[in-house]
């Protein structure tokens, strides 16, 4: 076989694997999405019993068994807070490591520990420590802290990669032109690394928004959305769960598109000759 034939064959093979993977990734979500439009008597599997928006309407009806609105709001606020915190701390930590302080290698691995540590156990540990210290568990305090230990490493790695490509001499040029370090950061560094900062914020948002393991033992009485959804699975399986899943997926996609849009806009501004 000639090498061009082999290369073509390899290209098609790898392409098929990639397409197969994408189907594998999206098919379950599409299935849930389709089933969420079942009629009022609809079951949780095919064949569908009619087509309606009944289960979406159901979500807004206050009911004792499952009210998703409050958990949704909590998860959203929590994700926003994690997003902002991750972005700020990731930039600060990456800046620090870029400065190569003594022990920055250890610092690097200590931060990455957040990715490697098993979430359930970390959450459980926080719950125990909180109890020992007499701190009340709450989604907005203990859960927030645990989530940040999980989202920060992703933002941190993103920012390290961004700074890796950042030309330090741009900052030095600003300094020799009379800018203080703070002004150089604001006027030169930040605008250039902004797409990376948005990426870090996005990690913070999406990783916190659907985090289950680290929330399980740390939220106290008021549950976040993933916990509520799992609770509902235990009680009764109705297409309203599919509706929640579809809505939150769409919501996440919207957020990502929004961030992406901002990134595209800022990049366009940097490139376009005025």
């Amino acid at each position: 076989m000639r090498w061009t034939t082999r290369a073509a064959l390899m290209k098609w093979t790898l392409g098929s694997v990639a397409v197969g993977f994408l189907i594998y990734q999206w098919l379950p979500m599409v299935t849930l999405g389709v089933l969420s439009f079942s009629g009022p008597d609809g079951g949780t599997t095919f064949p569908m019993n009619g087509v309606s928006l009944y289960w979406y309407a159901e979500l807004w009806e206050p009911s004792l068994s499952a009210d998703f609105k409050a958990p949704l709001l909590r998860s959203f606020l929590l994700a926003l807070a994690c997003s902002a915190t991750t972005a700020v701390m990731a930039v600060a930590a990456a800046q620090a490591v870029r400065g190569e302080f003594r022990g920055n290698g250890v610092f690097f691995y200590l931060i990455l520990l957040g990715i490697m540590a098993p979430g359930l156990l970390v959450g459980f540990g926080v719950a125990i420590v909180a109890r020992l210290l007499g701190i009340a568990l709450s989604w907005s305090t203990t859960t927030f802290l645990v989530h940040v230990t999980w989202t920060l490493p992703f933002g941190f790695l993103t920012m390290l990669a961004v700074f890796n490509r950042f030309d330090r001499r741009l900052e030095e040029a600003a300094l020799t032109l009379g800018a203080t370090r703070v002004i150089a950061f604001r006027r030169i560094t930040l605008p250039i690394i902004l797409p990376g900062v948005i990426g870090a914020a996005l990690f913070g948002f999406s990783l916190s928004y659907d985090e289950f393991a680290r929330s399980l033992f740390t939220t106290g009485a008021d549950l976040t959305l993933p916990l509520t959804v799992l609770g509902q699975f235990d009680r009764q399986l109705t297409p309203s769960l599919y509706a929640v899943g579809t809505l939150t997926t769409l919501f996440s996609l919207t957020v990502i598109l929004l961030f992406g849009g901002v990134m595209w806009l800022t990049r366009g501004r940097a490139r376009r000759p005025a």
Partner: peptide, 8 residues
Amino acid sequence: QDFALFPH
């Protein structure tokens, strides 16, 4: 060297 012009 390479001038370090601000790209933005």
